[in-house]
Design a protein around this nucleic acid. Structure first.
Lengths: 264, 264
DNA sequence: GAGTGGTCTAGACCACTGT
DNA sequence: CAGTGGTCTAGACCACTCC
């Protein structure tokens, strides 16, 4: 015998009217007190039902404003052709490279509308990252954290961490200084500067609910997941040159990957 | 002034001991009544804190068993080299094709341990799918739903829907009958049968919280997201030959995409 | 049967929003 | 200031698990 929970009943009652577009985005639901009366239930029980709908991403709960049907956010597309695009630009003149980068490409915004932030730190590799790079533990890595946001918003589009082996890029000291960011032409041109030719990029994608830290850093509403993209760049000799970690808000990010097949 | 919520305080108190491995997977938390006494709070408030941790995927709540630290599930990797792999097999002898398929490849399980289910339905394309295929609305599509599960489990690994234009594959009537599934060699060999050579596959990946329907169909625990993979297969002449929709449990699925870059 | 978690009530108080 | 949502209490009852 399955137990029937009162808050599920209330949620099941509200869901169809939201999903079938009977209520449009922005429309308000009945007040919690009215819902409680209407269903003959207590206020906390109604509250449980509303929390459920909020966790499912169906409604936004506005303190003092009422519960409203959520408006879907337009997704930003992160296309894996970005790698080839950036590599092609690595050999173009400085002025061209400086004009626009991958973030502008992803979001469709102009460079002036973007606020860029970079932070570099040198760390000694512990077992895990050392294994990823195939270097001995204790090798010095350059860990770079990036944050880019739209100037009128507070939250960045993504949280990005990128790791490099320090000695591999030390041939150009400019690459070790965060003050030189944002680097015209991005990380592909940085690698090009020290003679590294990337050969392929591997992306591992997973998804999970957001952590409280991510809620704060990315300003995520309830009812969103985060997409984790763990990227590994190899050069043409199959050496790992970059290991990156990207955290993306699931409700407005779409990843696009194209797999080309060989001819028969 | 930010309001301090009692249930957040309790959750914040428990989180570190779970995440820093002070408690290992499988360890039990204190009973809800004990937690309430210890924090000087009511039982429902403690319950709210435990729900939060469960939604974050940190604990499993076992009715009558106690709240235990969740054991991470081992992820199944879905590698985009699967497409080339399957295409290469499309021209191998029947016996070889029948021996193993992509699901066996993804999961590492043998064919006998898998339970396969397929359902075919013919539908007239409405505006949306017709646009994806580039055919007039009303064109007859074959909509195929697949479910594969491990024989000792109840929930399938994923929910898969695939759509084809009926006339494109009607040259071989065997392709229209679900009784011929599971087809040795999979969908790539099916296309090969009617002379279609796939050229590339586009995958669009998004993530969101699970819906109640998905909870039931995939037996998802709280604190998991679903990964949606919207795939489009093109043939060598850039014609759309297959549109698929895959719903994957986020807590045990990892997608792997490799992007190869051109030589300078 | 003892101990666990899950849910519910009735009412209260506070915070936030908009008029 | 009126109306909204968010939280909390104290205690109760029930379902589930395991011994």
């Amino acid at each position: 015998m399955t137990l029937i929970r009162a808050y599920e009943v209330i949620a099941d009652d509200l869901r169809p009217s939201i999903r079938e577009g009977e209520r449009g985005p922005g429309d308000r639901l009945a007040a919690k007190a009215d819902l409680a009366r209407h269903h003959g239930r207590s206020v906390p029980t109604v509250q449980n039902a509303l929390r459920l709908l909020s966790d499912e991403g169906l409604i936004d709960r506005g303190h003092g404003r009422g519960n409203v049907v959520r408006r879907p956010r337009t997704p930003a597309v992160r296309d894996d052709s970005r790698y080839q695009w950036e590599e092609d630009r690595a050999r173009l003149p400085l002025a061209t490279r400086a004009a626009t980068g991958v973030t502008e490409r992803d979001t469709g915004l102009h460079a002036e509308a973007l606020v860029f932030h970079a932070q570099y730190r040198e760390v000694e590799a512990s077992a895990e990252p050392a294994g990823a790079f195939g270097v001995p533990a204790g090798t010095v890595l350059l860990r770079r954290a990036y944050r880019t946001r739209y100037s009128v918003e507070v939250a960045p589009f993504s949280l990005v961490t990128s790791g490099l082996v320090r000695d591999v890029i030390a041939a150009d000291p400019d690459l070790l200084d965060e003050a030189n960011e944002s680097w015209p032409g991005g990380s592909r041109h940085q690698l090009h500067t020290v003679g590294i030719e990337p050969g392929r990029v591997e992306a591992r994608v997973t998804a999970r609910p957001r952590t409280p830290e991510e809620v704060a850093a990315l300003d995520l509403p309830p009812g969103t997941s985060v997409i984790l993209l763990h990227g590994t760049s190899y050069d043409v000799d199959d050496r790992v040159v970059d290991v990156s970690h990207v955290t993306l808000p699931g409700d407005r990010t779409e990843l696009l990957f194209t797999t080309r097949l060989e001819r028969w």
